[in-house]
Design a protein around this nucleic acid. Sequence first.
DNA 1: AAGCGTATTCTCGCTCAATGAGACGGGGGC
DNA 2: GCCCCCGTCTCATTGAGCGAGAATACGCTT
Lengths: 255, 255
Amino acid sequence: MARSSAGESVLTRAVRIFEAFGPDATTLQVTELARRADLHVATASRLVAELVSHGLLERGPEREVRIGVRMWELASRASPTLSLREAAMPFLEDLHAVVGHSVQLGVLDGDEVLFVERLTARDAVVNYSRIAGRLPPHITSSGHVLLAYGAPDLLERVLARPLERYTPHTVGTPEELRASLAQVRRQGFALLAGHVHEDATGIAVPVRNGLGEVVATMSVVVPNDDRATAQVPALMAAARGVTRALCGPRADRPH
Amino acid sequence: MARSSAGESVLTRAVRIFEAFGPDATTLQVTELARRADLHVATASRLVAELVSHGLLERGPEREVRIGVRMWELASRASPTLSLREAAMPFLEDLHAVVGHSVQLGVLDGDEVLFVERLTARDAVVNYSRIAGRLPPHITSSGHVLLAYGAPDLLERVLARPLERYTPHTVGTPEELRASLAQVRRQGFALLAGHVHEDATGIAVPVRNGLGEVVATMSVVVPNDDRATAQVPALMAAARGVTRALCGPRADRPH
DNA sequence: AAGCGTATTCTCGCTCAATGAGACGGGGGC
DNA sequence: GCCCCCGTCTCATTGAGCGAGAATACGCTT
């Protein structure tokens, strides 16, 4: 017996191995890894051994397997994602210090928000995002910003799927979503109270590059109260700072 | 003609492709990528296409290839490296605010210091590290800490190679290095003035886990002056904070 | 110590996924 | 138009990769 019955490539299988790990499964035994990756255990064992030899996976004392440092290093050395994060970091830190609640940096990947950075707060209302985590765009303020300024076919694709509600406040119909996005475009920011978690308000603003294109979104998660809107100017100032940093040493673009 | 003459695996080649990227080559054309990865251009083109289909690489408008967001995501979702970084982040931020200069978090990987995080400062003396970057351990304060508390065979391996000097101050002989490490063990921190760059002093302290093992190092890079030593208590306090965070909700360990 | 159960690695016959040489198409420059 | 460079496609070739089953490793129980 040779070759996988499904005609799969080695790379496809390796990717499936990496995808088997997640925040709830940071280490896995070979057998479980094989099960999750849908591989014969001997095959999984072999691929794991090779990935370990390359440093992309690592083994622990109980033969458990985890993501290797080399994987992160290769991903990070030349990553556009991390270039953006690095440019944004000083502004995220300042915003974090000023607002006192969790701040986030998100990008659009596929049809989802991918969170690139999140600075948490001790007294955070609730933390519903995680670094390298994803959320559907219709439920978060970040997602609303990315949809509002994104390509029209993005919105069509999002609307082609059911809009699942996380709370009674979550946008659940195409009409609601379109109205919300129109408001984002008018106001220049998204403010969603209780859409992901009942007790939290998400506020997000677009982050633009030097060409004026929206490339990311900065957001904060604050308690539901009347003072939420007061955070908007700080957010916008921070986003402008990131834009400036993304342009490099050139002069600011006129608004 | 089939199969590589060198009997290389697909994974080995994919790793070489990723290794071709770096901070000085964030995007590459397929031909250049093939050259750097020592692959036939047709092979490189094919592997790139597949890696792009998995999101591990991405293409730009001029057919340039760059690291894909998915690579970073898979590396980050379950990464022990990022767990450490996340635990350390609040303390790095506080330290950054207090010291006003660049702060760094480094780990030992192989025989080198790998920088996991770096918060920069506007008026930083000099930034000689980068996130996901490596430096030889004998030249940096971080490296001295990791060597001082590391396994003896680590030091032997480091000493088995020539100790290259970056500046006239850099440790350049085994005797100098051993003496410096002994001092680190006595003092509990490393302070190296002008070892990497003439104008900068690096100060590093060990970060321990709940078992008392040194798992990382926190450091700052400050100007050379008599006030440098004053930063040590803040560094040590921050490192203790990280240890507490790494222990989870359990009580503090007695010192 | 022996036995058992589980997990992981090794062996090996088999085969098709991966290879690179060369053709081809596209784009840019002269 | 011609030429050059780049990247993708085609295809004959073959050995890297496969999984079934054996062997080994490990932990636990009696």
